[in-house]
């Protein structure tokens, strides 16, 4: 089934099998819990922001392939970015996944473009956006948890 391969691309499966930056972060400046009550996906995202720049980002948790791969890819993409850049990236990823006519070109998002296939699976979009909402909460608010309801 070609469509299923659009969802479970090799890159996504690789991140699911070998999640990057899957670790606790004792010196994090923010740690936020993300929860998807529909399927039980649960993760904790850590960031260390110094002088407006994301010096380190990591996560731990359990979830489906899409949520784990998305979180893993997030950590690679966001590390080293300024808070403003990370927020713009969140907006682009959100647009790519949820909008019927995204203005974002998947090719310009590098590895994250692999998430584009999720758009065809409305029931799975929340799996892919969970870590991104968690990141957004970590960077822009004082809340310690976020759910995708």
């Amino acid at each position: 089934m070609s469509e299923l391969n659009d969802l479970y691309q090799e890159l996504i499966l690789d991140h699911k099998r070998h999640p990057r930056n899957f670790r606790d972060m004792p010196d994090a400046t923010r740690a936020v819990d993300g929860h998807n009550p529909l399927c039980g996906d649960q993760l904790r995202l850590f960031v260390r922001v110094v002088d407006g720049r994301v010096e380190d980002v990591s996560f731990i948790g359990v979830g489906c392939a899409i949520s784990m791969a998305s979180a893993s890819m997030l950590t690679e993409a966001v590390r080293g970015q300024t808070v403003g850049e990370a927020q713009r990236l969140f907006a682009d990823v959100h647009d790519l996944l949820t909008s019927d006519h995204p203005h974002t070109d998947p090719a310009e998002l590098g590895n994250l473009g692999a998430l584009a296939g999720v758009h065809e699976y409305p029931m799975r979009v929340k799996c892919a956006t969970l870590s991104w909402h968690t990141l957004d909460t970590a960077l822009t608010s004082d809340d310690d948890s976020v759910t995708t309801e």
């Binding site: 089934m1 469509e3 299923l4 969802l7 479970y8 489906c64 029931m123 799975r124």
Partner: peptide
Amino acid sequence: VHPHDMGTILDHR
């Protein structure tokens, strides 16, 4: 294999 992935894969069949 998380149940949610399972649900999607089975649905395709």
